[in-house]
Each structure stands twice: as C-alpha cells, then as structure tokens.
Design a protein around this nucleic acid. Sequence first.
DNA 1: CTGTCTACACTTGTATGGTAGTATACACCG
DNA 2: CGGTGTATACTACCATACAAGTGTAGACAG
Lengths: 236, 236
Amino acid sequence: MQPDKRTRNTVNIPFAVSHGSAAQRIESELRRSIVALELPPGIRLSEQEIAERHGVSRQPVREALIGLARTRLVEIQPQRGTVVAKISVRKMMEARFVREAIETAVVRRACSSFDRQSRQRIDDLIDMQDHAARRDDHAAFQRYDELFHVALAEGAGCPLAWEAIQDIKSHMDRVCQLTLPGPDAMLPLIEQHRAIVAAIDACDEDAAAEAMGRHLTEILRALPRIEAEHPELFSS
Amino acid sequence: MQPDKRTRNTVNIPFAVSHGSAAQRIESELRRSIVALELPPGIRLSEQEIAERHGVSRQPVREALIGLARTRLVEIQPQRGTVVAKISVRKMMEARFVREAIETAVVRRACSSFDRQSRQRIDDLIDMQDHAARRDDHAAFQRYDELFHVALAEGAGCPLAWEAIQDIKSHMDRVCQLTLPGPDAMLPLIEQHRAIVAAIDACDEDAAAEAMGRHLTEILRALPRIEAEHPELFSS
DNA sequence: CTGTCTACACTTGTATGGTAGTATACACCG
DNA sequence: CGGTGTATACTACCATACAAGTGTAGACAG
C-alpha cells in the first residue's frame, strides 16, 4: 500500500516545511486545529487515526500529543485514550492574571530601554494587523497580534517572557478565537496596541502598564456571552 | 541476555514509584541529576547509554529528553547528539525578571484573599525548612523552598502561576544549587520568607511585593562570584 | 608531508510489533 | 427480569529494528 518509504518524507516537505521533524510538524498542525476549534473540546484523538491521516507512524504522533499535553491542550488518560481538553474558565482567568503580571512588567521595562529595530517592527506589525482587520481576516489578525507581543518582549530585552506566556496561553487562545468574529472586536484591540506603544514612546511606565492591563482585561468582557453561547466547550 | 521481558517492568516498580510511566520517571531523575550538577553542562547524553543504565529501551528515554529540551535543560541537536545545556547568565536574568513579575503579583493578590489551609501549611513549611537549614541539608532546604512558593501560589488562588514559573525556573535552579553551600546562605532566605508572610498577614500589598522582590534579587548577589569560580559551567 | 575523498562509526528520527491495562457489550446465573 | 462474570475490542506504553544524516579517521593521490 505504501508507495515508497524513501520518498514519502521528501514528498511531504513542500507544503509543510514549518518545523523539521514529523513530530513537530504534527504538533503544530494539531495545536492549530485545536485552537481553531476544528477539533472541539471533548473529542477523542486516536493516535492510529492521526498517524494514518498524516501518513506517518504512531510514534511521532505520540510525541506530538505528549507535547500538547504539557500545555494542557489535550488530556492523556493512560491506557484509556486522549481527548481534547475542555476550556476551563478558572484556568483561563489564572492564565490571564499571570500574563498580565508578565506583560505589564515587560512594558515597564520597555520604557527604560527599547530596542530600536523592534520598535520599527512594531509599527509595521500594527499596520499589517490593521489591514488584516479591515479584510476581516481573523487568522492573520491573530498571527500579527501574537507577533506584536513577541516584538514587545524582544524589544524589552526579555524574549523569555514570551516563552513563559506561550506555555500558559493555550488556556486563553480558544476563547480569543471565539470572541474575534464578534462585531467590531478587532479594531479596539489595535487601538489598545497603539496606546501601549505611545506610552512606551513617552517613557511613561505607569501609563504603559495600565494600557497593557486594559488590553489584557478585554478578553473578560466577552467571556460571559461566549460561555452562555457555547456551554458545551467549557468544563466546569 | 534479558532475563524476562514480562517481569522487568514490575521489578522496577518497588524502588522508583515516583511517577507512573518510565518516561516520566527518567525525566524526573535526569532533571534532578542535571540540577544537582551531577551531569555537568556540556556533557553529552547518549540515549542508548541512559536506556541501558535504567534498563529500558531508547523510546522512553527519548521522550524524557524531549521533555527536558522544552525547558532548555538539554539541547537536542538533530542527527548529532544531545548535550546538557550550559548555564546562560542572560537567560537566568530574564527568568529571574519574569519570575519576580509573577510572584510579586501573586503576593499582592494573596493580600486580598488567602486560603486558610495554605496559610497554615506555609508556617509548617517554613519550620521544616528551618530545621533543614540547621541540619545543613541542602536538598531538603531546596525542596521546602519550592513547596513554600507553591503554597503561596495555591493560597492566592493561582496554582497556574507556579506552573508558569516551573517552565522557566530551570535557568535559575543550577545557580541556586551553587549558591546554597556558601556560608550562611540559607538562613537569610528563611527570614525573607517570614517577611513575605508577615506582609501578607498585614494585608500590606506594597510591603509584600517589595519583600518578594528582595527575596528574588538575592540570587544576583552571589552570581558574579559563582561565575568567576566556575566559568566552565556558563555559556557566554 | 599535505590536502582531499571515501568509508565507517556514531547520532537522532521513524516504523512496526507486541504487552498490559481499561471499558464495554454480551452471555450466563440467581 | 436484574445483577454479575467474562470475552473482546479498543487504548497508551514499551521494545526492537531500520532509515537517514553527521563527524571523523584513515586511505590515497599529489
């Protein structure tokens, strides 16, 4: 049934060169699908099926699932099965709290010294995000949003801050995914980004921290509505 | 050469029941060895050798190494080898910064409301840590220190904060390991713990945050000396 | 003696077979 | 007809074998 083991991997390269190993590719792909809610919370994930769908063996799939379990996107129940984790409001609130703690500290630090190259990049990112919003392109919007926060951390000289956030952000991502399609949800976020940058330019620590705090509080506004509309996605 | 595949796993259970799967057991064991500097930075780790030493196959070892690579304790160089990562002063400083951001926010929150059970547990932990210090038991001291910070996060209603810290703490752990054996390094830390708790009891947010900040700045004091004494452990 | 080229010994990455454990459905007994 | 024991069909987990890439030592030509 398999055409040729030698060529199989090389055939896959062209359209998904994102990461080197198959395990990393599959982890990225699964993470994207889960965050995009294409794989809804509660659904069972079969190593076998995923392996067949991607044309690889079960081993890389297993490593991918272990990676996802580390960020709590899936729950591996030993000898029983693996399911996509439900969204926990509690964990989401905690993640938001921790993220606010980190990012307010980051922007305060950015007020003291900010890398010039990152500063320029941020303007570009905001522009591109603006265009994405006007095209109503949610995926691009979210990608540029992420890059904005990455650039902030790097510009402040603390790229590790974003790594720390990434590990907990999974609890928030799916909620954000649900809020973006709402009417006029994107443009205010861009304005908040601009406010943060303006405060940094003015070297006003308190204003920058406050702006970041407001920005990261935004997600709480739509939460009750989202939870009421999609109760099946949430856990407790 | 293998005595009996059926019995091998069950034989291993009695003396190392720490975590369920072999992969998790080995990851914990390796993490401990690396943090304790029994496996010095720069040393090569062979999947094969570790597998033989633990009496398992390469697969669980591989998963353990992937887990360690996620927290940057080891570096997996594809098709080349895996080495214990050197201590990066830059990353350590960044991790310290992020950790301070998180934990100061946690203690501020703890001033508003703190779980009573955790509050009692913290007193016990400080006592036990004090005894460990007087016995000059570094391992126990570090364990209770960690449990103290865990209890703080849990008491403040944000256990996720500690998870986030854990992911970046590896950059600091080995430096702490080097500073503890110094003369009179442990007792001041305990006093700082007490100061933090006292500020929380007094519901004084600013004092609690400041006490935590001082506590987490302590690691910077000994850093130059450590780096000068053990330059081979550091990267750049 | 020196530079290049090749074959080999190593590594990580992947594929595949097999084992232990759990849940479920079905037959069987009370 | 209700409750219990058993067989079966899954699962994650582990062991083993193989593939593919990398660094190095040694042969060989100049």
